[in-house]
Design a protein around this nucleic acid. Structure first.
Lengths: 195, 195, 195, 195
DNA sequence: CATGAATGAGCCTTCATTCAT
DNA sequence: GATGAATGAAGGCTCATTCAT
């Protein structure tokens, strides 16, 4: 008994994985279809059995990354009516989950977060989502009123993307440490308490 | 060996400017020599009179950007023995000067800060420089001791690059506002004082 | 060696029909096996169960067309010892039957008469057959002696192919009208009687 | 002194000639850019220096053919107020000039008259032009009133294209003979005068 | 008898770079 | 110092055809 398309779907997934690795390493323009299929152990026409074009498979990888991360961020809800230290730990938990996702999918992250043309728009959407969460927290009195939340949201994105690239993906720091430091900086700043 | 006359240098500069615009708009791989010379009003062989290759002119642009910004950052010294609010304003002044440089050279910034492959290493060097400055400030007692300064320096780079891309270069925010908000976040964090 | 059952022959015919339509619409080179089998509601390997190759099925279609039309033309005999008006009506009857065949098999006609490489040779053979008929008619005194019958036969082929393409297949004229006009031109010419 | 583009235009013309030969021999789909440039003694990229694509050079050849032949046909005016035998000789002169053009440009003729997709539309336009000429001649009383001039014009096109292919281009008949026979058939038909 | 999947071979096109004038 | 013209090298994509089940 032969499940319809079982082999085909396996090949398709092999191609996706191989493409993620290649794109992550070399970027879109320097990645050749021939390298992707070589890594996947297939021939070039097989590629076009599963994907329309080089652009198409890249777009699919980007899409997978973006939808998964979007969902993760969207679901990171801060419940209302908590004490400050609870808010902090909830935010940190969210950050941990995000960093975990990013470090758990390194190739996909490189593609969707750094090599993609539309990563710009995607990060802008993420920033909007974060800004709204911050607005709620400020309305609840947790956050200072003289901060530009649009700026803060973008800054948080900037912190996440930079640290992901330089510390998380190379394995120099773990998600928990990064989340702690991010939360510390974001909430408390660097100034000594008695400064 | 041939001397380049005044005319030659003007051509060379026209090519550099044109290349900066094209690379800024389309990135390295999607920029064609033919587009650069077209924008500069010249012919293709003329290009090779002034530059070795596409890589070479790109590298030169990157180099110009990096050395100018490096110098700017390097020269942003915090004098010792100041009050906290003086430190804050000195830091802010430094940030203003950096953002001013970036917004004053938009094409070069896009090339050297975002499109360049080695922007990664460059930002790492910047981060190191910032980290050392922070170490001095912490040694002087201004900064809290439980913060990972390596992290903080990278975070600052991340904030600067992200806000440059989304707010500064599109003209949505000016250098002063960005410097203020950056300093606020970096030093004080977002938490309400009575939080 | 394997026997083809009833089902196999039905598939074979479906493929032939589908191929005729596709070849008629797009010509040999722009017709893909995948389109043929798609139109026939089958898969690609099924195609090769019934035909050796793309060339083979095309050749078979051409062959069907050519043998049917050849036979029709061959059987259009002019009986000897008739009056001129009878000859005219016999010739017209033959022309009607040919145009009827062509309009009754539009896809096959397009393939075998217009898209086929060897339609050239086929038409040459047709022209030879017509020339011989004309020679008989001339010998019987019906036709003028200063006409190049080889030319006339080719001209008749040219008239038939052109009018088939532009008037018959698009449905703009019916076989009877075309036969009448063909006969009129061929026998009498366009000149006014009092010219 | 170096005339601008002299060499380039020579190359361009070499490519056009080579392409005409190849297309004439093998048709559009079986002609490879590599064969064209090989025949022209050049390399593949040189082709794209002068033409946008394979389609473009083919279209240009077709265009050259069509505009030249169109002009020739358009300029073949029948002057009014002549005797019948003068009309005949004028028509024959026109036919001779057309056949001469076709036999003088065999490769171009094959491309523009037989291999081109839009030869269909082109011939339709030619037929329209011929029909109008015939209408004038009929109005002047030269042609019989019971003939379908649309049919006659198409038939003339059919005769010309067929005889061009089978007699003129292979060198089996010369333009004058073909013109005579065409005129004879068209005006007088095949019937013996005493029939 | 039929199918999902795979492939060998080939062609068009692009672009950085160089040559001859 | 400048130009029109040319090219080497390579990459994406297509399609007739076949295998393994």
């Amino acid at each position: 008994m032969h499940r319809k398309g079982a082999n085909g779907n396996k090949s398709r997934q092999r191609l996706l994985d191989a493409a993620a690795e290649e794109f992550a390493l070399y970027g879109f323009y320097q990645t050749k279809i021939s390298s992707i299929v070589a890594r996947a152990g297939m021939t070039q026409p097989a590629f076009y059995l599963h994907f329309e074009s080089k652009d198409a498979i890249f777009a699919e990888l980007v899409d997978v990354f973006q939808s998964q991360l979007s969902e993760l961020v969207e679901n990171s809800r801060i419940k209302p009516g908590k004490a400050v230290h609870e808010v902090k730990s909830e935010v940190q938990a969210a950050l941990v989950s995000w960093f975990r996702f990013l470090s758990g999918n390194p190739a996909l992250t490189k593609v969707g977060f750094f090599h993609s043309r539309e990563s710009v728009h995607f990060k802008a959407r993420l920033a909007d989502m974060l800004k709204e969460k911050m607005a709620l927290e400020r309305a609840a009195g947790y956050l200072r009123t003289d901060a530009d939340l649009g700026f803060a949201a973008e800054a948080l994105i900037g912190i996440i993307e930079r640290l992901t690239l330089t510390r998380l993906l190379p394995g120099r720091d773990d998600p928990v440490h990064l989340a702690e430091q991010t939360r510390l900086l974001l909430f408390d700043g660097l100034l000594a308490n008695d400064g």
